[in-house]
């Protein structure tokens, strides 16, 4: 695809620019859709309808209207806030999750950058998110924000351990950190004759690994039941309390981008990425993008589903869950997968 664009435009920097904003477009369109979907899912789970008016059909334009409203709103910075950090925080937050999309193969024809340490890069750059949240919480000069930020620090640092360990167990199987290669390894329908060659079917322990990964990913993206940094019924809005207008909108966008990012990573690592579940049927670069986003959206939907079902954990229980259950379990799982790999290969 890059070659095609290069031949078409015959200018290096422009092509790179066009090429590199593809994920941004996807994120923006996805965020508009996902926020609408979240409202609809929430509505119907609660026997309501959700947005119905804006745009005509089932309120499809509601998020666009909200976005326009947010752009018009006054950009309020509290008088006693640290202005520079306060204004920077949302951008860093978004940059962190946007940057991570570089290493994700959206289809067989598209990956932002073919870096060999893709997984490592994603893990590293998403950690920036917690920095930005601490910045936001501290700079707001608000006690609720500060509490939220402190929770985030503890939460993100803790949950990175099980995330990395479960990713590591996949890497044992694939032997590469490059996500494109990880995906390519999962093509074909060889497993048990009809199931796709996805890593989740590799061994029973892989299912557990995915499970652990998913829980940790929920915590990393601050979704219910792990939404302690913002927990609106306790901390008012957590680190977002003092934000308004588009800066708040950027945090919102980051949250949804983060959901998609972790879902896509999960889909790539466990569910064959852009591979079609039907072997060569419906396969190809464009179909690949479709499958990739579909798998991502399914996981995003499950996150929403959980959000509208479960209450929220308390901060000490969150830590308990991580350090007492997830981390030991993921290490044990890592060892078991390693043994499985030794025995059956």
């Amino acid at each position: 695809m890059q070659e095609f664009l290069e031949s078409f435009m015959s200018s290096g920097p422009l092509v790179v620019f066009v090429f590199s904003i593809i994920p941004l477009k996807i994120i923006l369109v996805y965020a508009l859709f996902a926020i609408w979907l979240e409202r609809k899912v929430a509505g119907h789970m609660q026997d309501r309808l959700g947005p119905m008016e804006t745009g005509g059909w089932h309120g499809w334009a509601q998020t666009i209207a909200d976005l326009l409203k947010m752009i018009q709103k006054e950009d309020i910075v509290p008088a006693k806030a640290d202005r520079f950090l306060f204004k920077m925080a949302p951008f860093i937050a978004f940059a962190a999750s946007y940057g991570a999309f570089v290493a994700i193969p959206l289809s067989s024809g598209y990956i932002g950058s073919m870096i060999d340490v893709g997984v490592f890069y994603i893990v590293a750059i998403t950690s920036l998110l917690s920095v930005s949240i601490i910045m936001a919480g501290w700079a707001s000069n608000n006690k609720w924000s500060l509490l939220g930020a402190m929770r985030t620090a503890a939460q993100t640092v803790s949950y990175e351990v099980p995330t990395v360990v479960t990713i590591l167990s996949v890497i044992i199987v694939t032997g590469t950190l490059n996500l494109m290669e990880v995906t390519e390894m999962q093509s074909g329908n060889g497993f048990l004759g009809f199931l796709p060659n996805w890593i989740i079917f590799h061994s029973p322990f892989m299912i557990l690994a995915f499970f652990l990964f998913f829980i940790a990913a929920l915590a990393e993206s601050h979704r219910v039941p792990f939404d302690l940094p913002e927990s609106e019924s306790e901390l008012v809005g957590g680190y977002q309390t003092e934000y308004s207008g588009m800066r708040w909108g950027l945090f919102m966008l980051t949250e949804y981008a983060d959901m998609l990012l972790l879902s896509l990573v999960g889909a790539t690592l466990f569910f064959g990425g852009w591979n079609s579940p039907f072997g060569s049927f419906m396969d190809g670069p464009l179909w690949g993008a479709f499958w990739m986003l579909l798998k991502g959206m399914v996981l995003v939907f499950v996150m929403m589903w959980l959000r509208w079902t479960l209450p929220r954990l308390r901060v000490d229980q969150l830590m308990n869950l991580c350090w007492k259950y997830l981390i030991p379990l993921s290490f044990v799982n890592l060892v078991l997968i390693a043994f499985w790999e030794m025995i059956f290969k």
Binding site: L49, W305, T309
Partner: peptide, 21 residues
Amino acid sequence: SIFTGMGITWRHLFTKSVTVQ
């Protein structure tokens, strides 16, 4: 308990909503 809860919310996803437009 978590899966029971998810089952209930799933079921409600398809029950008729009570909203009056």
